[in-house]
Computed example of a mutant assay.
Amino acid sequence: MPPVSLFGPLDAVLGDSIEYVLLILVLVNLLTRVLAHRRHVKAAEEGGAEAMSRFLPHAASNALLVLAAFYYLTLHHHAGMVTSVLVLGLFITDFFEFEARKVEARRDVPIERPKGAIAASLLTLAYVAYQSLFFLIAPAWGAVV
């Protein structure tokens, strides 16, 4: 547990394992992104742009990811700031990618993958995996540094 506890019992429960929670949330977000894209393609084929709507599990995973990143910021300031910036970038990218898919459906062009959101997700995944799984590369890192 960190020396300064802003959230009391939450810090006692999640304080030492928040990196792993973030890793799981990023992986869940990737999975819900795939499911949301499939749903958007199917909705666009059946009913056009009006039939498309945001995928609730993906929106919930985005919200949980943002909240977890902000909580991580209270525990580890430097890593939390980097993670929060990456997650907020991912959140904003998701918002605009959905709007771009609706434009594609209105223009009757094939629905593309959300490339920007995928790139932001992979960058976020790489950093969160580095933070949470550092113990795997710590011996090699220590030998180099």
Rank of each mutant, 00 (worst) to 15 (best):
P2N: 11
P3N: 07
R113P: 01
A143F: 12
S5E: 03
I118S: 02
R38H: 10
S121H: 12
L6S: 05
S121A: 12
R38T: 07
G89K: 02
L30G: 15
G80P: 02
I118N: 03
H76F: 05
V85P: 02
A100D: 09
T93M: 15
Y130C: 05
L122R: 09
A69S: 15
V34Y: 13
L122E: 06
K102R: 15
I18N: 01
L86N: 10
Q131H: 03
T83C: 07
Y72E: 01
A100E: 12
G15E: 00
F134G: 04
A129V: 07
S5L: 04
R107V: 04
V26S: 04
F135A: 13
L27C: 14
P9E: 07
E50F: 08
A129Q: 04
P2K: 12
R107L: 14
G116F: 12
L73N: 04
A59H: 00
I118M: 11
R113G: 12
P3F: 03
V41H: 05
A129L: 09
V85H: 02
A36W: 02
W141A: 15
G48P: 06
V41M: 05
S61D: 00
V128S: 06
E19N: 14
V21D: 01
L125S: 10
Y72P: 00
A60M: 11
Y20V: 02
I18Y: 07
I111R: 08
H76D: 00
F7Q: 02
L25D: 03
L64M: 14
E19I: 01
N62A: 10
L31C: 06
A79H: 12
A100V: 02
L125N: 07
S132C: 07
R38K: 13
G80Q: 08
A59R: 04
L123Y: 07
N29P: 00
L25N: 03
L64I: 06
I111Q: 08
M52G: 03
T74N: 00
V4P: 01
T32N: 08
Y130G: 10
R38C: 03
D108M: 10
A79S: 12
L14P: 01
G48C: 08
K102P: 05
S61M: 09
L35I: 09
L27E: 01
G89N: 13
T124A: 14
G47I: 10
G47H: 09
A68T: 04
E19S: 09
F7R: 03
V85I: 15
V109A: 07
V28E: 06
K102I: 07
S61C: 10
T124N: 08
L67N: 04
N62F: 02
R39W: 10
L123W: 08
I18T: 11
L90R: 05
L25Y: 02
A143M: 11
F135M: 08
Y130L: 14
D16E: 13
N62V: 03
V4I: 15
L35R: 14
G48N: 10
A143T: 09
E104K: 14
H58F: 01
R54S: 00
A119Y: 10
A69Q: 05
A44C: 04
L67K: 06
D108H: 14
L30S: 11
F134I: 01
G47N: 11
I24R: 08
D108K: 15
T74S: 15
L75C: 02
Y127T: 05
A69K: 06
